[in-house]
Amino acid sequence: MKLFYTLLPILLLSIGVSAQKLPDVQVKGVLAPSTIRIDGKNLEWGTFAAENKRTNLWYTIANDDKNLYLAIKANDNETITKIMAGGISFTINTKGKKREQDAIVVTYPLIARTNGNRGNMGQNRQRAGQERQEQGQKERDSINLAQRKTQLAGVKEIKALGFKQFSDTLISIYNEHGIKAVAKMDDQGAYVYEAAIPLSLLEIAAGSTNEIAYQIKLNGLPNTGNFAMRANAAPAFGGGNGRGGNFGGGGNANASRQDLMTATDFWGKYILQK
């Protein structure tokens, strides 16, 4: 008995560590909560089904008898900056093949950016750099968070590809097809995203036991040639807090910029839950 009480704390600790460890890719289907609302708030999900190391995302894919759901959370600044740059693409191949061909793709958020007066870009960056140096880290984080909240609130469209029921590639967030996507920044600075796609649009029966393949991709910044690859350049969408918004200089800066412009993704399989 004495040995039992001696080992009990160790056993409890090991159970706690095991409970916190999540798979890299979701391994089980999840029945969506009956109280689910697509509002960009992590209220219904609790612990996520997986923590993907490649994309630095926590995520859960779930379903009910009407929709397929995706819930995502990102905490680190570099990942959020990449999401704000090019959105997240959720690809679904209902034939169970891990390929984008003949698949359905929903991309969100689509944040509009303007080049402004390109003749003043260098001067504006220099002024922005000076302002960032004068600000404290807490103030920079606060400004960055407010900027991201404003940008997400301004997103009005969803990119939708591969649907047989309609041909539009850009649809309103208030569309008549039942596709929903909402992302918000919480007060701790985390990015929370929820999406719902009707099973009818995917042409999947509610009781289907067929395996579907899915891909989650962080698209990164489109390489349009307008992005200045300089050490003191801070992307307009990421703020400038020194942890991803402002890349700084040197080799780490080059690596960060390259990562920002390189898509990262992973594939998984899912079977609907009854």
Rank of each mutant, 00 (worst) to 15 (best):
F4I: 07
L8P: 06
P9S: 04
L13Y: 02
L13S: 08
S14Q: 12
V17M: 08
S18E: 10
A19V: 15
K21Q: 15
Q26K: 04
V27E: 15
P33L: 09
T35K: 15
I36Y: 08
D39Y: 06
K41T: 13
L43K: 06
E51K: 12
E51G: 00
K53Q: 11
R54W: 11
L57H: 06
W58Y: 13
T60N: 00
D64H: 11
A74G: 11
A74N: 12
N75C: 03
N75A: 14
E78P: 07
E78H: 14
T81M: 04
I83P: 03
M84N: 03
S89C: 02
I92C: 08
N93Y: 09
K95V: 07
K98R: 06
D102W: 10
D102Q: 13
L110G: 03
R113Q: 09
R113Y: 05
N115F: 02
N120Q: 13
G122T: 13
R125Q: 10
E131G: 00
Q133T: 05
E134L: 14
Q135M: 15
R140C: 12
R140G: 11
D141V: 05
I143R: 15
R148L: 05
T150N: 08
L152A: 01
V155T: 09
K156F: 00
A160L: 00
L161R: 05
G162E: 03
F163M: 11
Q165D: 14
F166D: 05
T169F: 00
T169K: 10
Y174I: 11
E176K: 15
K180I: 05
K184M: 04
D186G: 06
D187Y: 00
Q188V: 07
Y191A: 08
Y191T: 11
P198K: 09
L199I: 04
S200A: 09
E203I: 05
A205N: 03
G207R: 01
G207F: 01
N210W: 09
N210V: 09
E211N: 09
K217M: 09
G220P: 03
P222F: 07
F227A: 10
A231I: 11
A231E: 08
A233Y: 08
A234N: 13
G238P: 12
R243W: 04
F247K: 06
G248I: 02
G249S: 15
G251V: 12
G251K: 09
N252Y: 14
Q258A: 15
D259A: 06
D259W: 15
F266N: 07
F266A: 05
K269P: 02
Y270K: 05
Y270E: 13
I271E: 01
K274Q: 08
K274C: 00
